[in-house]
Simulated scan of single mutants.
Amino acid sequence: MERGLLWLPLLVAFFGLAWSGWNEYQKIEFYKQWAEKFERHKYDIYAVLGQQGDRLTWGQPTRKGLKNTQTVTFQDIARIRFRIDNQFYDAKDAEFPLNAKQISIELVLKSGEMPSIRFTDIDIASGWYRFLSDRLASSIS
C-alpha cells in the first residue's frame, strides 16, 4: 500500500501534464483557423497578433477562442514603442538583455490609449516592431 501511495503524486502529475498539453493543443488549433485570414500573424502564450491590410488584431489565446480581442488601423496609431523589462529600446539596438522577463510592443494611439502586446521572444518582438514601424512610416507619408 505504501508503494501505491508513493506512485499517487506521479499519477497526478501525469494527468496534470496531459490536461495542460490538451489545453495548449486546443489553443493552437483555434489559432490556426483564426490566422488563415491574416497576411502576417504570430502565436505566443501571451498573445496572438495578426495583420491584414491596414488592420492589426490581437487578443489572448484560450482553448475556447480569443478573449480581450482588439483591432486598430494604422491610421489610429500615433507611435510604436518597444519595451523590455520597463525600459524602452530602439529595435535597431544590437544588445538586448538575454534574461528579459517582460517583452512587449506598445501602440500609442491617437486617442491616448496605449495597448500593449506581450511577447516571449525578443527576436520575434523586434521583427514585429521593425515591421510595424515601417508600415506606420509608410502610412503616414
Score class of each variant (00 low, 15 high):
Met1Glu: 13
Arg3Ser: 05
Leu6Ile: 15
Trp7Gly: 04
Leu8Arg: 01
Leu8Val: 05
Leu10Glu: 02
Val12His: 09
Ala13Gln: 13
Ala13His: 13
Ala13Tyr: 15
Ala13Glu: 14
Gly16Arg: 11
Gly16Ile: 12
Leu17Trp: 11
Ser20Cys: 08
Ser20Met: 12
Trp22His: 08
Asn23Ala: 15
Asn23Leu: 15
Tyr25Met: 06
Tyr25Leu: 09
Gln26Thr: 03
Gln26Arg: 15
Lys27Tyr: 05
Ile28Pro: 02
Glu29Val: 07
Phe30Val: 05
Phe30Pro: 00
Ala35Leu: 02
Ala35His: 01
Glu36Ile: 04
Glu36Met: 10
Phe38Val: 07
Arg40Phe: 07
His41Ile: 00
Lys42Met: 01
Asp44Gly: 11
Ala47Ile: 00
Val48Glu: 03
Leu49Gly: 01
Gly50Ser: 01
Gln51Gly: 00
Gly53Leu: 09
Gly53Ala: 08
Gly53Val: 03
Gly53Lys: 07
Arg55Gly: 00
Arg55His: 01
Arg55Asp: 00
Leu56Phe: 02
Thr57Asp: 07
Thr57His: 10
Thr57Gln: 15
Trp58Pro: 02
Gln60Cys: 11
Gln60Gly: 01
Thr62Lys: 09
Thr62Gln: 10
Arg63His: 15
Lys64Gln: 09
Gly65Ile: 04
Gly65Asp: 04
Leu66Ala: 11
Thr69Pro: 00
Gln70Trp: 06
Gln70Asn: 15
Thr71Gly: 04
Thr71Arg: 09
Gln75Cys: 01
Gln75Leu: 06
Asp76Cys: 01
Ile77Met: 01
Ile77Thr: 03
Arg79Leu: 08
Ile80Ser: 04
Ile80Trp: 07
Ile84Asp: 05
Asn86Gln: 15
Asn86Tyr: 14
Gln87Ser: 08
Gln87Met: 11
Phe88Glu: 10
Ala91Pro: 10
Lys92Ile: 06
Asp93Pro: 02
Ala94Glu: 11
Ala94Tyr: 02
Ala94Cys: 01
Pro97Phe: 10
Leu98Gly: 10
Ala100Val: 04
Lys101Thr: 03
Lys101Leu: 05
Gln102Glu: 07
Ile103Glu: 05
Ser104Asn: 03
Glu106Asn: 04
Leu107Ser: 14
Leu107Pro: 14
Leu107Ile: 14
Val108Gly: 00
Lys110Val: 03
Lys110Met: 08
Ser111Cys: 06
Gly112Phe: 12
Gly112Arg: 14
Pro115Ile: 09
Ile117Gln: 02
Ile117Arg: 02
Phe119Pro: 03
Asp123Ser: 12
Asp123Phe: 14
Ile124Arg: 14
Ile124Trp: 12
Ser126Ala: 13
Ser126Trp: 06
Trp128Lys: 13
Trp128Ile: 13
Trp128Asp: 12
Tyr129Cys: 07
Tyr129Phe: 05
Arg130His: 12
Leu132Gln: 13
Leu132Gly: 06
Arg135Cys: 07
Leu136Ala: 02
Leu136His: 08
Ser139Arg: 14
Ile140Arg: 14
Ser141Lys: 12
